[in-house]
Design a protein around this nucleic acid. Sequence first.
DNA 1: AATGAATGAGGCTTCATTCAT
DNA 2: GATGAATGAAGCCTCATTCAT
Lengths: 193, 193, 193, 193
Amino acid sequence: MNSTRRPRRSDTRQRIQDVALELFAEQGYDKTSLREIAERLGVTKAALYYHFRTKEDILIGLYEDLTRPMDELIAWAREQPATLETKKEILRRYGDQLRDSAPMFRFFQENQAALRELTIGVDVKARMVTMGELMQGENPSLADRMRCLSALFIMHAGVFSLRHVEADPEDKRRAALEVAIELVAAAHTEPPH
Amino acid sequence: MNSTRRPRRSDTRQRIQDVALELFAEQGYDKTSLREIAERLGVTKAALYYHFRTKEDILIGLYEDLTRPMDELIAWAREQPATLETKKEILRRYGDQLRDSAPMFRFFQENQAALRELTIGVDVKARMVTMGELMQGENPSLADRMRCLSALFIMHAGVFSLRHVEADPEDKRRAALEVAIELVAAAHTEPPH
Amino acid sequence: MNSTRRPRRSDTRQRIQDVALELFAEQGYDKTSLREIAERLGVTKAALYYHFRTKEDILIGLYEDLTRPMDELIAWAREQPATLETKKEILRRYGDQLRDSAPMFRFFQENQAALRELTIGVDVKARMVTMGELMQGENPSLADRMRCLSALFIMHAGVFSLRHVEADPEDKRRAALEVAIELVAAAHTEPPH
Amino acid sequence: MNSTRRPRRSDTRQRIQDVALELFAEQGYDKTSLREIAERLGVTKAALYYHFRTKEDILIGLYEDLTRPMDELIAWAREQPATLETKKEILRRYGDQLRDSAPMFRFFQENQAALRELTIGVDVKARMVTMGELMQGENPSLADRMRCLSALFIMHAGVFSLRHVEADPEDKRRAALEVAIELVAAAHTEPPH
DNA sequence: AATGAATGAGGCTTCATTCAT
DNA sequence: GATGAATGAAGCCTCATTCAT
């Protein structure tokens, strides 16, 4: 009887971020104006500036929401033994993130050019590369590197690029995971113990 | 008489397209203004309008340069028997296109959001999907569809996403092709004769 | 009981005025925003509105601090006989004010255009003119009027415009006073007794 | 039958500068918006941007118009022998400039604070100081420096600060020149030949 | 005595586009 | 084959100010 009362401690900030993501994902970052965001929210543009210093700042908030879990996953992965089972688990967890933050992932993927020149280095791909490396063994061949990186790309494809395929999203996700695991397994060599 | 029969559409037209691609790829479509293009070319903005009706028209020219070979490859592929050898050849040819038009591919990949709302449907991905389908057998499983589509993604990755890997670009390309073929092969079943 | 009888208008009020003067003098009136003042003070903008009705009100406070002593000096001067000794004393006292309120004088001098259209007539120059007149004799020649007015300008110059001259500020002030007195003396004719 | 035909080679550029000076002088630089300038000219804001890159650029044009003659005068003065007659001539010429560019001088004087932070160092006062130095002898006393600098201030005062005095502007100018010459003469010592 | 949240007005600037020459 | 001049729409952002708490 408090938490749902009325706009608490800036519920607005969150709403701005939600609407922004929605529009950014729909139309692209550059094509989305603050006017639109404000209108859809029923506030004035100036209100946005009370909560965020710039348009870019809104984006940065979203970016951090996306990369925080990725970075946590990376940190966790670094502490695990480089077994195949670990790698599978990484892929599984990555798949979960992908599912939970699909619109955000899609947005960052489709707006790479628009985001490149931002003051903060928005670089989701760098994290994918890092993750790919976590799945390689020692001195991997070029082909193995490709396999590991591709495993991740495939999982993205499973969520975004099979939209035209009529099938249960969960099934697609699982199929992607399956292929990804195949690839990582092919590149795997048991670490020296 | 010139090297080509009809008075080839002025040289400037081509130069505009070249510079435009350069800038579009560098900074993104939305962030690149006609002023910039004109400046880098040493002409006025108005001059651009002599050669192209709109900014979008410049893009369309580029789009056609990219899709013409793709469409030709697709047409060719449709006429071939669906053997594994055919599929390998498709991948090889696709790889060549990817190499020859790398900046263009990259541009369309990184600007998906910006291009989505254009009056012409700029849809490179649709062609990738079509190509993926050409590599599937009859009634493919979800996983096989994934494999075939991913084969193509991997080839992109080989050109664009391994920039951080110090290695000969040709080697990377070959490694990508190798993995792509693996995937397509895994999904392949000899067609009924 | 406090050091002053009535509960002195809160300390914050004074601090606002101090900070405002500092910033107004540094950057100009128009370029200084209430946000900046509030930030440097560590309070919110809204707090300023508890103490002042408008931005202009802050300025008016400063203006009064500046003109009160000037007006007192003018009033005092009017009651004295128009002897040369009186005039010297006026210059001396004016010099003291100039020294004690240097930032304020400078601010009003450098922001004349910005302050011109304010609802209260901010007119420091009018007071200088009045003072200049107090130093003229009866029916002064144009040149004598110039001399008297200039005497005052020179004293300003002694404080503000010789910043590039490395010398003790007090010395500069004294030199300015000396020249000012010369000028007033040159314009002086002993009043009829 | 050509020079007065119709808007020649960008007559507009000059008109923008004229109107801008008018408004800048009237209301101050900060308070004058490009909208106002455009409106008074009967063009759109965007038209201003065809002729000037920024608002500041308009100002810089005016600034250069003001300082070019000052710098020429300074250069000329440096080549003359430092006789009293030379100094008088400098003051005379300075007076002419002051008369011819009165609005501009006034504007830069009354907007010092607003102009201080511009990217180009708008510094008219520095030139006055330089001129003052040209009128000093060797090793001038502080008081003599004051006299020479003040001579220039007085001439400004003669043009701007005696507006309340009903008298022919030319007479005022002459009176100011007279007093200025007095001061410079008092500071003068014949240079060693 | 002061804050958090918001507004309306308006600022400067950039853009794609047009058109007479 | 191209320029010079201009426009209308829109963008991001900042400001002084208000008001409920």
